[in-house]
Design a protein around this nucleic acid. Sequence first.
DNA 1: CAGCAACTATAGCCAGGTCAATATTCCCCG
DNA 2: CGGGGAATATTGACCTGGCTATAGTTGCTG
Lengths: 168, 168
Amino acid sequence: MNVFDAPGITAIGLLYEVHAALSTRFAAQFEEHKLSTVEFEVLTRLARSPQHQLRMTDLAAQTTLSTSGVTRVIDRMERDGLVTRRACPSDRRSSFAVITAAGLQRLNEVLPGHLRIIEEWFTGQLDPESLQALVGALRQVRDAVHPCATAGSDSKCDDETKEPEPAA
Amino acid sequence: MNVFDAPGITAIGLLYEVHAALSTRFAAQFEEHKLSTVEFEVLTRLARSPQHQLRMTDLAAQTTLSTSGVTRVIDRMERDGLVTRRACPSDRRSSFAVITAAGLQRLNEVLPGHLRIIEEWFTGQLDPESLQALVGALRQVRDAVHPCATAGSDSKCDDETKEPEPAA
DNA sequence: CAGCAACTATAGCCAGGTCAATATTCCCCG
DNA sequence: CGGGGAATATTGACCTGGCTATAGTTGCTG
């Protein structure tokens, strides 16, 4: 009966555990600044984008959200003054989400603590070669498993520079 | 501005990416068998428990769910015939969730494919020493970060043999 | 043994997200 | 042109899970 002790299982279990621990730790800090995890991710995505703006669809593609999910998140964040909507001049179907000054400020309030947590809970726990090995192995898996080659994935996944998520 | 290229950030980004890829891949397979991720996890937890049963509270502790969450999941699964409720003879406050024959059968239908995915997407992509390094590094982080020592965590986290999650 | 605090499961309400349907706009091809 | 199909954002219906209140049960303690 103990299929449950297979080597892969324990490795994946660890992966899930670490992911869960980091997620909840991050979320706790975000909450101190009145942000949810997705809101933080939206802010970072916008902050690092060319004009501090991104089309709704692209934002959806860069996060784990669906397009309607993005609509609702942006609704909330607009209500809170963190972002604004802007009509796209070249394509009237599209609209941009733009990060506001308040949004940038909020992000700058959160980031230092975020980085500190990463240092404390993650990088600081590993000697450089362990970290290197970890990154190498993960990259290996990621590349092999890249959504494109498989069924069950509806993401476009063409060239899409899906950068490593900053945190969440 | 580019705080975003810090070494820890890319590592965590990778971790999140791999986790997301595996999760969606698993979920897709579960769905083929009309199961959600949490339902699969409940089935495995029950299947590997002494009498094929677990108190609601313990089930909550072993999963990512709250107790009310467990109540609802068990509601659904009982409706679908995968589990049953059983009164606890020694403590009338408690009740057990028991996996049924149908539940065991469903689990056995899902498991082979689940293991195959793990092999294909994960262990099969890594040479033994990479896998070993990965596990080592993750364990290092996990142990350092174990919920107990930190604020923001309300889990009891006393002795609780929180085994590595089988998959989800 | 009486009362009180802790524990257990559940129900109500809410936040947040997906899916399907819709309206608008764009683009391509006849 | 111009009509049909793809793309885009939004909305409504629904689902899921968390938090909190509630009711029942237990066991300790004075």
